[in-house]
Nucleic acid binder design. Sequence first.
DNA 1: CAACAAACCAAACACTTGCTTGGTAGGCTA
DNA 2: TAGCCTACCAAGCAAGTGTTTGGTTTGTTG
Lengths: 197, 197
Amino acid sequence: MTEQTQTSTRRDELLAIAAELFATKGFKNTTVRDIADAAGILSGSLYHHFDSKESMVDEILSSFQTELFGKYAEILAGTDDPRAKLEAAVRVSFETIDQHNHEVAIFQNEAAYLGTFERFAYLADRNQQSRDVWMTLLTEGVSSGALRQDLDIELVYRFIRDTVWVAVSWYRPGAKLSHHDIANQYLTILLDGITSP
Amino acid sequence: MTEQTQTSTRRDELLAIAAELFATKGFKNTTVRDIADAAGILSGSLYHHFDSKESMVDEILSSFQTELFGKYAEILAGTDDPRAKLEAAVRVSFETIDQHNHEVAIFQNEAAYLGTFERFAYLADRNQQSRDVWMTLLTEGVSSGALRQDLDIELVYRFIRDTVWVAVSWYRPGAKLSHHDIANQYLTILLDGITSP
DNA sequence: CAACAAACCAAACACTTGCTTGGTAGGCTA
DNA sequence: TAGCCTACCAAGCAAGTGTTTGGTTTGTTG
């Protein structure tokens, strides 16, 4: 009863190993033997912990998404003004890239492929949910006068989403620039542009 | 001797079919049988035209890159002012996404994985070359006073690169917004930001 | 010490994968 | 008509794949 953290330790270790490999080599390019090798066991032994390779990605992705969307919900429910909310959402995103690097990478690279399976239909739902979050923030921003009126909000949403999440392909935790630095620079560009005032 | 275009027709057809599948499902997820099925032949028959599955991506990627970097070189060698050059490079990129959708998608999704093979070492070179192009444009932009001085150019380069190329994941040729429209909106955001003046 | 469960091994199975081989249909040319 | 070439088929192989099964080790608990 008090052994929850102890009991799940080995499972979590294996999931972390799998996540790193999935993120680095891709889901299809990673074999169960790769995972087992990295863990120092035989491939068959993985099936004592998980019932399929798919279950592993599933668990990795779903738990990560639950956490992320919890944070978005907090921001939306908050009392900040529209611009502050938008900034907060951007900062949370870069923070997530820092703290859940592998998970974000897997989602970014494999969502399109995995989404074709019934089992991963929730990925499309999350995608829609994410769109709702950003569109709400942008719409509030425009109607409050904080953002320009001549923008195609749909396009702006896509640009933000892409730029933010794609950073996972080059950002490495612990590098010279922290995720705070990157978020600041990005917000500067996004909000004020790169031309000299 | 005069049959070059005729002779290569079937080859090109098969390459186009392969490109679409590679772009949609991923390189590793696409089997030679998938390609053959889509072409209406048997998988073994592909090897009359190509000597391996790798050769197919190789040919697809290398010919596309040659074309793209030719256009970048033209812009760099031109006499436009820094800001106009930067705009031109952005426009050419979105135009490429429109005209070589599959090729861009393959490069975007598979470069990291393919780059681990010697055969595809040139992908890393092209990447470096691309960086040189954008960094040159940005540096000229800053020193000419057209762009702000307080920017981390390296970061700006990454944001531009990511935002531009990642658009391939949602842009579909023939959609409501043309690649011209998208380039215009993007340049507006990039140059002037999204906050109201 | 007996009982038990978690973690793992050893070996295999069924299937998929890229690719090879020897042959054939049909059109073009000398 | 004979020869040749392009495009393809039919069948299969060897390696790699995810997964299953029955048994073994190791530590814990009553």
